[in-house]
């Protein structure tokens, strides 16, 4: 009797449990990143929330439980209008960079014949990342300024007599600078999507008598939408949060939301207000991620 029980016992323990091992593996992979994001994102956000509910009196932080700061984000000038303006600049940047990026991505995906050339052009898209953002933005000043290359060139050709000041120190120049800086992100994103298009699809369309324009409009353009969306989300977000371009090439009133936050911290010492703006933008960010996930899912073509 005992011997039978013992053998049964041994058989049980000699088999490891797959379910238990699976749980342990998940734990092993998930816990380090989860701990990281908890410590460096969730806890700081909670700190932000705590700060935003208090207020500052005579340069000292007074804790509290007031939603005043959130109300102020939406009612007191200039917060809401600056957020809207930043979003507008972000949107323009996203639209312009998609338009600028598309031909290059298209060329890379369909017209480059050798792998070597493809590698070279791919490299040429990435390399501008390495040239300092600041120096590049400053180089635009060298080109567009009233004593800049463009004006001097146009004057010497007799096209204009006075330096044109239209290119610099306004919202449009901020749009253009940001477009220039962030276009490579859009190129890579659109290219990745176009590269997925099977060659046979184009051949089938041509075989059915479609011309180049029709192939583009009816097949390639719809398929490329998720790539354009993904690129637009990235360029929008990067441009929305920028604070360098307004300082370097923007006009006197072209502050963006990041500049406002910096001023609240560095000049006004109004931490609670800055925290409230931060939380509003974090919520908007989460919304944007959900929306983009939904949009990319909806527009994605399955092959």
């Amino acid at each position: 009797m005992t011997t039978i029980e013992q053998t049964v016992e041994i058989k049980r323990t000699s088999i490891r449990s797959a379910r238990a091992i699976e749980r342990r593996r998940l734990f092993l992979w998930l816990v380090p990143p989860l701990a990281w994001f908890t410590i460096f994102m969730l806890i700081p956000y909670a700190t932000l929330l705590y700060t935003s509910l208090g207020h500052v009196d005579d340069m000292r932080f007074i804790p509290g439980l007031s939603l005043d700061n959130f109300v102020r984000v939406f009612t007191v000038d200039p917060y809401l209008s600056v957020i809207i303006k930043s979003a507008r600049i972000g949107l323009m940047t996203a639209v312009f960079s998609s338009i600028v990026a598309y031909p290059l991505a298209f060329y890379l995906a369909f017209h480059v014949r050798t792998q070597r050339l493809k590698f070279l052009i791919y490299l040429l898209v990435i390399v501008p990342w390495w040239a300092s953002y600041l120096v590049k933005a400053y180089a635009w000043k060298t080109i567009l300024g009233s004593g800049g290359i463009l004006n001097v060139g146009m004057q010497s050709l007799g096209l204009v007599h006075e330096p044109v000041r239209l290119f610099l120190y306004n919202e449009f120049s901020v749009d253009m600078t940001l477009t220039y800086i962030f276009t490579p992100f859009a190129v890579l994103s659109i290219y990745a999507q176009l590269e997925r298009v099977p060659t046979s699809l184009i051949e089938a369309a041509r075989n059915l008598g479609a011309d180049g324009w029709m192939i583009f409009r009816r097949i390639i353009l719809p398929i490329s939408v998720p790539g354009v969306v993904a690129g637009a989300i990235i360029t929008f977000s990067l441009a929305f949060g920028d604070f360098v371009a307004p300082v370097l090439v923007g006009g006197p009133d072209s502050v963006m939301i990041s500049n406002v936050v910096i001023n609240l911290l560095g000049v006004a010492f109004d931490w609670p207000m800055a925290a409230a703006i931060g939380l509003v933008i974090i919520s908007l960010g989460l919304l944007l991620i959900s929306a983009s996930g939904w949009l990319e899912e909806r527009t994605q073509t399955r092959f």
Partner: peptide, 18 residues
């Protein structure tokens, strides 16, 4: 994914407070 869409300044201010 949040830090991709979030302005760097916001990530900065949250961490600075922390």
């Amino acid at each position: 994914m949040l830090p991709i869409v979030l302005p760097g300044i916001i990530t900065g201010i949250a961490l600075l407070g922390f």
